[in-house]
Simulated scan of single mutants.
Amino acid sequence: MRSVLVTRPAGPDDALVAALRQRGFQVHPVPTVTTAPIPVEAAALEGFDWIVVTSATGVAALPELPGDARWAAVGAATAAALAERGVTASVLPERANGKSLAEAIPEPGGKRILLARAEIAAADLPGRLRERGAEVVELAVYRTLEGPETSRQALAEALADPELGGGVFASASAVRGYLALGGRIDLPAVTIGPRTTGAAVEVGMRVLGEAREQSAAALAAAVAAALPLEV
């Protein structure tokens, strides 16, 4: 059975792992990054017209969610995380990426918008919102830790699997964490989008496929296209 390495932080609980197994892959869930929440006071979320979240991890890191703001989520998984906490996302873009999210928020000019996300994140979302006239406040609610030592042995075992066809990477930090743990650049990669593809190519990895949008379903489809079970 063809196997694939999944490097996302949730490990075996990741929706991508289940999606790939349903498609017939053996999966090695080995997080090459982990996340840690950054303490945030509830008052930091008050006084905004919109609160924008870009991951379920970011939603989980927030304290009590204020009900007087409208919420925007980058994708279905993030919207579901909000729903679990009793909040409905007013905006959910057709494509799950920062640029589409910035364009989907209606008439942001003059509005105060809080962007709650990772400590290190791309600049396209806040940049486009500011271009559209919004007052954007960026709030780091979690940080990403690359190359957790607890994954080193599991990664070595996955790389020793003769049926391993490739690895799935959902961020540039996952690529860096993979290499920090002893990952090989000759392992073909499937990525979540252009930035991750660029990071993989930069270190010498061959990218076989890229998800059409930032979701577990799109990643699973990209893996299936890049690594067919029957060759």
Rank of each mutant, 00 (worst) to 15 (best):
L139P: 00
A104H: 07
E103M: 15
E64M: 10
E135L: 13
P93I: 08
V136D: 00
M205Y: 04
R130P: 00
A158L: 02
V201D: 07
P66L: 12
A123Y: 08
G67S: 12
R143C: 04
T144Y: 05
T197F: 03
L187M: 03
T78A: 04
A76W: 03
A200H: 03
G209N: 07
Y178Q: 02
Y142Q: 02
G204M: 04
D161N: 11
L65K: 05
R132V: 13
G193W: 01
R70S: 12
V137H: 14
I105K: 01
K111T: 09
L145R: 06
G110E: 08
A81W: 04
E94N: 10
A96D: 07
I120K: 15
R184N: 10
S173A: 15
A180Q: 14
A189T: 00
A79F: 04
L155H: 04
E94L: 11
G147S: 05
G147P: 01
E94D: 15
T191C: 13
T196H: 03
G147I: 01
I185G: 02
A156Y: 08
L179E: 09
E135G: 05
R95M: 15
K99R: 15
A172K: 08
E202S: 15
G133H: 08
V137C: 12
V141F: 12
R128M: 10
A73V: 09
E149P: 10
A140D: 09
A116L: 14
V190S: 08
A80I: 04
K111Q: 13
P106Y: 07
V190C: 10
G75P: 04
M205S: 01
G133Q: 07
A160V: 12
E103S: 13
K111A: 10
